[in-house]
Write a protein that binds this DNA or RNA. Structure first.
Lengths: 143, 143
DNA sequence: TTATATAGTTGTATAATACAACTATATTGG
DNA sequence: CCAATATAGTTGTATTATACAACTATATAA
């Protein structure tokens, strides 16, 4: 069982996460949670808090608060659902899209600087393995 | 510039981190910060809060609090430095080592379950690329 | 048409963090 | 050699991201 590769991954993952979370505050305008929520709305279109909470693996109350922050900043619009007056959907605004793109670009630039000496092959592999990991986790959990 | 691989990595990294942070609470006894601090002491030996803070990229006050939690739980011992009465060093106890090992094993087991269908080659690559990323970041920041 | 289920919000609590103010001890320069 | 400064650590306060529980308003079902 004592798998050498697991040991390496386990160790590197904690360092990886720690470092990214601590440094990204200095480089990005939008904080992590806002960025992820905005990206979700931009990628998959308008949705209500329940759906968003499910998709983002968060509590509804958490998303509710995060969404109202974005509303206050005019990054998203809160639109009542005409078919169900209990619910709403949040739609990204043009200001929100702009802000998202700026942040995305800043993240790319930073990543690009870090990976500048990597071969294209290693960059591709890294992205694919992260994707594979995420997909594997999703499969295992959605039983 | 618009590098397809960067795009993939950027996207996958946020998902990766989000998912790990949210799920690990359910599986581990020690929380993330305690685990990392304990692992640091186990790996590199006794140290004071200043050194620990530098090595872990945290504020001294943060480490000070985290260390006192570990002291309360008897996982580490706070030993005065005989050569400098301002300072201390924290040393992991046998209870602490045991707790660390149990947690490490639980993390391995979980990771092992997730990666059970991966080839040895992919596991190795993934660990090595994470390591390479971490090393690259360290080089770039320690100018 | 009442009982129950659902979408969302808000109150409260917790964890991890940083910064600033502070205490106690060491080191250094006139 | 002692006054000024630097250093190790702690504690007060604030922020951010999160969850759970209680609640409101609306919809659906028995």
């Amino acid at each position: 069982m004592s798998d050498q590769h697991l040991d390496l991954i386990e160790r590197q993952v904690t360092d990886f996460i720690r470092r990214i979370i601590l440094t990204e505050k200095q480089f990005n305008n939008l904080d992590r949670s806002a960025y992820i929520l905005l990206r979700q709305l931009a990628t998959y279109g308008p949705a209500g808090v329940k759906t968003l909470a499910q998709d983002l693996h968060l509590d509804i109350s958490t998303v509710s608060r995060q969404a109202s922050v974005l509303v206050d900043k005019k990054y998203v619009e809160k639109i009542p659902n005409p078919d169900d007056r209990r619910s709403y959907y949040y739609q990204i605004t043009s200001i929100g899209s702009l802000e998202l793109e700026e942040n995305k670009q800043r993240r790319y630039d930073r990543l690009s600087g870090i990976l500048e000496d990597w071969s294209e092959e290693d960059k591709e592999r890294f992205g694919l393995l992260l994707k594979k990991y995420n997909e594997t986790v999703n499969e295992k959990l959605d039983l």
